[in-house]
Design a protein around this nucleic acid. Structure first.
Lengths: 116, 116
DNA sequence: CTGAAATGATACGGCTCCGAAACGATTTTT
DNA sequence: AAAAATCGTTTCGGAGCCGTATCATTTCAG
């Protein structure tokens, strides 16, 4: 069955999802950080700093700093590319997988509560 | 028909939506700002600083500053409550309505593109 | 009429993020 | 082997957002 979302439902879903995130977490990820995280978890590897920067249309330092931040949070990890040691490969972590799973569950729960 | 979203679809929707927002706008709203904006546009008035702060579980200055920022962007506007001049009523604007409409359209478009 | 309560705004110091530019390490080209 | 190119990081000054504490205005209670 296709996902058929009306504009009013889309807005309510967006609101309810953000509302829950804002209420729960003291400090949450920026839109850029979420996009980086989900890109790494949803799209096929490898993910490099340069590749992510080009894909998201941001500068390289933005990626580096986002990796610093989300690395501290253990949501992502860096690893040198053994083939070309100039590259840094961005990889998933257990904690990151759980975080992404929580995002998915929250979206699903909020979508189920939408009015017909 | 109910909105039936699987976890993998939810994540892709979240990713695609954020991706587009990040790529388009140089500077985007924070999760808190989005939540404030959608609360004002989706829930029945009146909306006061104190009421929004309590609802979102944030401090009052957070709301004041968000109103400063989104007021400059003309997405929301302040108005003194004539009945009780201590209150500030947060109201919609034409520009804000267009912005919210754009959010809805983007969500709908991305949901239509989801795999079955 | 005066003091307390309520409301939103402001001041402050701290933290994070930003883009541009410069930098060190590594690889590729000449 | 030297020079050029590539990649990610760091540095810099600037801007935004944070929570706490305080402030001015307005309303309400005694």
């Amino acid at each position: 069955m296709a996902v058929d979302l009306r504009p009013s439902q889309a807005l309510k879903l967006l609101h309810d999802f953000n509302y829950e995130m804002v209420r729960d977490d003291d400090r949450d990820l920026t839109a850029r950080q979420v996009t980086i995280l989900l890109t790494v978890y949803l799209e096929p590897p490898p993910h490099t700093v340069r590749g992510l920067a080009a894909k998201l249309n941001v500068t390289k330092p933005v990626i580096t700093r986002a990796l610093d931040t989300m690395g501290r949070m253990e949501l992502l990890q860096r690893r040198r590319d053994p083939a070309d040691r100039r590259n840094v490969l961005v990889q998933r972590t257990v904690k990151g997988a759980l975080y992404v799973e929580r995002l998915a569950d929250l979206m699903v729960a909020k979508s189920k509560a939408l009015p017909l």
